[in-house]
Design a protein around this nucleic acid. Structure first.
Length: 700
DNA sequence: AGCACTGACTCAGAAACGTCTCA
DNA sequence: GTGAGACGTTTCTGAGTCAGTGC
């Protein structure tokens, strides 16, 4: 059984103090210079370095990686096309702003596409029985139009939308320090409002959050403010907080017209900035709005939570577009940091974020050609793994016996990745992020070995925090050889030592690359998720069930995958209540049904005596009523089961990222389930390529 | 030559938002 | 017919993976 919980939510005081202490030590060594570019000067932990050295020694024999291709199932056939054949910038007038962009888009661009792809189209058309309008997203090797690594030939966009400027609070909203009213400078006030807006959130009670916030807030204060405000606990943000609550309340209470006006403004913004031209398509951009300033909310026990995420200015922004495109103009009085023309990447805009020093991007929507193609490619790689997975499994089982420690560790790790769908587990910089692990970065403290547990032999108990600090807890019986190996790996180690001290993701992936071109650790997740869906669907779908029951089967298959991938969610706040509501509905329905049955019975009795047409008719209608109620009851019960089973499981992530959509499409076609029942509008847009491609015989 | 760094991309759950349903 | 709450959808942005590059 999967248990959910974030360590830090339940951690006891001692642990808390410990992590605090650790963090303070980090701070001391790290922040001496006080520069704002601290993230650049990487802090090296002594232990970590030692560990790394060991690994280095052990991995000296790494094989030289062979030349890597782009992971296509078939090598891309590169057609030599004249540069300007079809890759012109579509004249502006052609790009009509649209209310329902996607559909009309297709109509807009189809003609051009057909022009540029005459031959391919013709071939395709023969294969197609269905809507031609979806062709724009049909893939069938669009990539081959580009030489290796080239992502586009023409790219034009309007640049990002910046966060709205700060609006100072009205005079009557006061801030108090130590019980006394205090007027803050605009900059200090802005940062204070970030905190005030989060006052109801658990974050603001956390020591690290408060400390980080206060430190960064003070940087924004004037000298006088700095002198006065020395203790966060003496700050009273309640008026600010109430003001924002009132504002959001007011927003909810707005009249229809006002709401409509806002909606229209948003649509206008989307129309203008939400699309770009990539080659001869108008494509939706995923995140064209720049992240507004605020307080950093890391997940889990993040050492940087509460730090100030600064406002991004045009001067921070790098614009990427093609040379022959119109460069977006920066807001008046501002300049871009840089304009570049790099067609080996897919992003339109980038900037460097100040918390981790990492780069953020503006990229295209999942429905775009460039994302869809990549997605399709991912599943094709996973399907190639299907063909050789048996061989690979035999190989790593052999490797459990290897004389070389490194090989054994690699083999056991790969076994976990395959069997349990664990993530690869890159090393992370200590003190920069929450302490989470994946397979290669598992530590001794994360597993417990039980030679026997609950009647099973050789059980490994996993308990660690994975991505997003989601807890992975699982007791797994493993093969004896694995168990013995784990015992060996753990010998003479401290709890905080790496379990696989001779292994990292680089070594593992290099090895995988040798086993199959394009194979990496995460392909196993995709493969196992998709193959599980396919198997489960086969197993669970009962041919003569009705549609709701079929959908339940689908959800159950989906759920099996979500459990495998450990996709969890916090139980909805209203879960208990809504469950009870549903139960009372079921009870009511049962009562109705009992009544209806009684009515039917008496009607039948009447009919026996009277034998006239009228009473017969009554019997018929009562029969129908019973039937209808039975159906309704079943539907409700199905719903209840589904919901109960879904309490802590998030289906969305696997559906969106791990399950080959063609399996779903095929299943829908086979059983006559409308695709809309499984995929909503957005999902259908994202998977348009699959809906177009797969027929009911599709096999993953 | 080897590996640390980092850029570019996918994947992740929470929160905000919109819509539907039921009293 | 209406309004509140439930529930599905969309947005947001943080957290991973992985390979290329530059020291």
């Amino acid at each position: 059984k999967q248990e959910r919980g974030r360590m830090w939510e339940t951690e006891d005081l001692n642990e808390h103090k410990d992590s605090e202490k650790k963090h303070k030590e980090k701070e001391k060594t790290k922040h001496k210079d006080g520069s704002s570019e601290k993230h650049k000067d990487k802090h090296k932990d002594r232990d970590k370095e030692k560990r790394k050295e060991e690994k280095v020694r052990a991995s000296g024999d790494a094989k030289i990686k062979k030349e890597k291709e782009n992971g296509f199932s078939s090598p891309p056939r590169i057609k030599d096309e004249p540069e300007d054949d079809g890759y012109f910038a579509p004249p502006k007038e052609d790009i009509k702003p649209l209310k329902r962009p996607r559909e009309e888009d297709d109509a807009d661009y189809k003609p051009k596409k057909i022009k540029t792809e005459d031959l391919k189209k013709e071939k395709k058309r023969k294969l197609e029985e269905e809507e031609v309008s979806k062709e724009t997203v049909a893939l069938g090797g669009l990539e081959e139009r580009y030489p290796e690594g080239i992502k586009w030939k023409f790219l034009e966009h309007k640049g990002p939308v910046f966060a709205p400027p700060y609006e100072p609070l009205p005079e009557n909203v006061k801030f108090y320090y130590d019980g006394k009213v205090m007027k803050l400078s605009p900059k200090a006030e802005e940062v204070a409002t970030f905190f005030a807006k989060m006052l109801d959130h658990e974050y603001t009670t956390k020591e690290i959050f408060r400390k980080n916030f206060f430190k960064d807030w003070r940087k924004e204060m004037t000298n006088e403010e700095k002198n006065i405000i020395t203790n966060l606990s003496k700050c009273d943000f309640t008026q600010m907080s109430q003001y924002f609550k009132a504002q959001s309340e007011a927003r909810k209470q707005m009249s229809k017209e006002e709401k409509l006006k806002i909606k229209e403004e948003n649509e206008k913004l989307l129309k203008e900035y939400g699309f770009c031209i990539m080659d001869n398509h108008r494509e939706r951009i995923a995140n064209f709005k720049i992240e507004p300033p605020g307080l950093f909310r890391g997940r889990g026990n993040h050492p940087k939570m509460g730090m100030l995420k600064r406002r991004i200015m045009p001067e921070d922004i790098i614009i990427n577009c093609s040379k022959d495109a119109k460069v977006p103009s920066p807001p008046t009085g501002h300049k871009w940091k840089e304009v570049r023309h790099d067609n080996k990447v897919t992003w339109l805009v980038s900037w460097t974020e100040n918390i981790q020093g990492s780069i953020k991007y503006i990229m295209l929507n999942p429905s775009s050609r460039i994302k869809g193609e990549k997605d399709w490619q991912k599943y094709e790689t996973a399907r190639r793994l299907k063909k050789c997975v048996d061989k690979i499994r035999n190989q790593y089982r052999e490797d459990w016996k290897s004389k070389e420690m490194k090989v054994r560790q690699r083999a056991v790790a790969l076994y976990f990745i395959d069997k349990l769908a664990l993530r690869a587990g890159n090393e992370k910089e200590e003190g920069e992020t929450a302490d989470t692990v994946g397979c290669c970065s598992l530590r001794v403290e994360h597993i417990n070995l039980h030679p026997e547990l609950d009647g099973q032999e050789y059980v490994v108990e996993f308990d660690f925090l994975g991505k997003d600090s989601i807890r992975y807890y699982n007791k797994v019986p493993v093969e004896k050889r694995v168990f013995k190996n784990l015992q060996l790996f753990m010998e003479n180690k401290q709890p905080e030592d790496d379990l696989f001290d001779r292994l990292n993701t680089g070594i593992l992936n290099k090895h995988l690359q040798d086993l199959m071109e394009g194979l990496t650790a995460k392909v196993f997740r995709t493969y196992n998720a998709s193959i599980t869906l396919q198997q489960q669907l086969k197993e669970l779908t009962a041919p003569d069930e009705n549609i709701p029951a079929k959908i339940l089967s689908y959800n159950r298959a989906n759920r099996a995958v979500a459990i495998l991938c450990n996709h969890q969610r916090a139980p909805p706040k209203t879960f208990e209540k809504s469950m009870m509501n549903l139960q009372s509905k079921i009870d009511a329905k049962k009562e109705q049904l009992a009544d209806a049955r009684r009515d039917l019975k008496s009607a039948k009795a009447d009919a026996k005596v009277l034998k006239d047409a009228k009473t017969k008719k009554v019997v018929e209608s009562k029969k129908k009523a019973v039937q209808r109620l039975e159906e309704q009851l079943m539907k409700l019960e199905v719903q209840a089961t589904d919901r109960e089973e879904n309490k802590q499981i998030a289906l969305g992530t696997s559906k969106l990222n791990y399950l080959d959509p063609r399996i779903t499409v095929a299943w829908c076609k086979k059983w006559g389930v409308p695709i809309e029942k499984i995929y909503n509008k957005t999902q259908r847009e994202k998977f348009a390529w699959a809906i177009d491609m797969a027929d009911e015989d599709y096999e993953f």
